[in-house]
Amino acid sequence: MRRLRPYAIPYLLWMGIFILIPTIILIILGFSNLELYNLGVFDLTLVNFRIFIQDQVINALLNSLIYSVITTVICFIIGYPVAYYLSTLPEKKRKILLAMMIVPLWSNMLLRIIAWEKIFQPTSIINDLFGISIDLLGTPTGVLIGMIAMYLPFMIFPIFSVLEKMDYKLIEAAKDLGASDYQTFIKVTFPLSSGGVVSGVIMTMLPAMTSFVLPARIGLGKINLIGNIIESKFMKEVLGSSGASINQGALISLLLMIFSVISFVLITRVDKEGETLI
């Protein structure tokens, strides 16, 4: 096997190019007036930090935090019992139900968001067919429901995969030592599934925090998250927006990367080799 080691080296190089270099550039961009599309001399400056006093940006940051935390908490409350329930089913049922949870993810994300948009319209196809009016377009509730529906599977999968692999003998051992069902869950099952919970929380929270199509469509542009700000700062040519500034965008991206790094450190603690991530 030793002879096969060279196969790993190009990967390190590849990851260096696409992870390390852009991170360095983002840091330089954030703390200077360097122009990405016109590289040249630049001065270090903290002028980009001014965006953090803009109401729009502060609101977006707060929104990101609030929406992602609420989404994650609700996904956890719903997702843990679901993962637990699924893990107790006989193998055949378990496989089918799990597959049914993966299947919807193969449907285009954008169209799924648009589907929620259609559902939440005051006069919608749901209204016409079933007589139920769910008028939630442009409301926080609508955005939250959309987010929960979108990210719930990412909470369930990692928790399920840990619970499924858990040695049933450990639960028997706890009962053997006198623990009731409840005590067994609190003292053994839950702590042993904590790795899955950490992965699940991160895999739900980060995408929720950075989503920008979902709040834009279901929130009717009234609810902006940090992703919407980053998009508007970076996508000058596509959006033609006047407020574009890659340097400011870089600074906000760096802020996001801090969350990313924290999550990353947490995940690395519980699951070094990424076994709960797929």
């Binding site: 990851m15 696409f18 895999m203 995940i267 690395t268 991530l277």
Partner: peptide, 13 residues
């Protein structure tokens, strides 16, 4: 661990 970076990183980043 390095391999996990793009998996954990938000798509936007």
């Amino acid at each position: 661990v390095i391999n996990n970076v793009p998996v954990v990183n938000p798509d936007i980043v």
